[in-house]
Lab assay of single mutants.
Amino acid sequence: LRLEVKLGQGCFGEVWMGTWNGTTRVAIKTLKPGTMSPEAFLQEAQVMKKLRHEKLVQLYAVVSEEPIYIVTEYMSKGSLLDFLKGETGKYLRLPQLVDMAAQIASGMAYVERMNYVHRDLRAANILVGENLVCKVADFGLARLIEDNEYTARQGAKFPIKWTAPEAALYGRFTIKSDVWSFGILLTELTTKGRVPYPGMVNREVLDQVERGYRMPCPPECPESLHDLMCQCWRKEPEERPTFEYLQAFL
């Protein structure tokens, strides 16, 4: 395994491009020591290896001592969030954005069929390849993070704006909380990567959403798509659509 080009840095580690087995181009995620327990990670990795779908980033291998390494397929255009905010983002029109959403829903419909939960679905965790191919990455890892700023769910590192209220408040993460996050991801797509709930801080978002506030229809977004977002944001988790439905609708 060779680490060649550093692609990015996040709160919990770095991402590199490299070569595996001398020939395969891969992405390598390294986790800061202390982010998660190697034992817990190894268990999760076994499950992650079983998830194989064309719209999920394929896991190739893991190094399960500290520092933990995760070796996955390489996606040339990086994260969907950076892609939307970058040069190419300007030229993306609604049909392409909807197609990308459908690809993500397709990957998540598979996660749904496998009775698995992602827990951290957002544009930053979707990767883009050639020809606007989108794949879901980092599934299941969020559960293992041991950082206090994260586990408190009120901490600075927790993605509260993407998280369903029952998950943020009571830790009830299910495929239905993933559906909520998918609704937020749809706003990221239609606004080219704007942060959700602009002008609001995490605490406010939690309070307002509890009181029934939902983001309005983004500019140039059809009402039918906003309606779909609002279905994803129904207060009762069981009233939210399935990913199978979302995939078919898109």
Rank of each mutant, 00 (worst) to 15 (best):
V136G: 02
E39H: 13
R25K: 13
W233Q: 09
K235H: 11
P222E: 04
M114V: 05
Y213L: 09
F173D: 03
M108D: 00
K49T: 06
E244T: 14
S106H: 14
K161Y: 02
N202A: 05
T163Y: 01
T24P: 10
E39F: 12
R214N: 10
M229I: 09
E210H: 14
A102I: 08
R203T: 09
E238L: 12
Q9R: 06
V98R: 14
V133M: 13
A61G: 06
V26S: 12
C221I: 08
G129E: 08
W162H: 04
Q154N: 07
P222G: 05
P33R: 08
N148T: 09
K49E: 05
E65N: 09
P196L: 06
M36T: 03
F243L: 13
L56G: 03
V111A: 03
P165H: 08
V15A: 06
G107R: 00
W233G: 07
G78L: 10
C217S: 10
Y60S: 09
V128T: 06
W16N: 15
E238G: 11
A102P: 04
D138V: 03
L84K: 02
D99F: 15
L81M: 12
T30W: 09
P218G: 07
V57N: 14
E236K: 11
D82I: 08
G18R: 01
D82Q: 09
Y60F: 12
V209L: 08
P33Y: 15
T30V: 04
G86R: 11
P196S: 01
E236I: 11
C11G: 05
T19E: 13
A142Q: 00
P95R: 08
S79Q: 06
G212Y: 06
F139Y: 02
T191F: 11
A101V: 12
L228P: 05
E66C: 15
Y213R: 06
E4M: 15
E39T: 10
L84D: 01
D120L: 00
L84F: 08
P219I: 15
L141Y: 04
E39M: 10
R172C: 09
V136D: 00
S64L: 03
D99Y: 15
D82A: 08
Y116H: 05
R93T: 06
G18M: 09
L31H: 05
Q9P: 02
W16S: 15
P241A: 05
E14L: 15
W180T: 00
K135G: 03
L144R: 15
H118R: 02
R240S: 01
S181P: 02
E87K: 13
G140N: 02
M75L: 05
R113D: 14
T191P: 01
G78F: 05
R93E: 05
S37N: 03
A123P: 02
E239F: 15
G8N: 04
Y213S: 05
H226V: 07
T190S: 04
P219K: 09
R214H: 13
P38D: 14
V57S: 12
R194M: 07
K161H: 00
E236R: 11
N202G: 05
Q247S: 10
S76Q: 14
E87H: 13
G199D: 10
R143T: 05
V26I: 06
L56Y: 01
W180C: 03
K32L: 07
E130H: 15
A137G: 14
E220V: 07
K235S: 12
M36P: 03
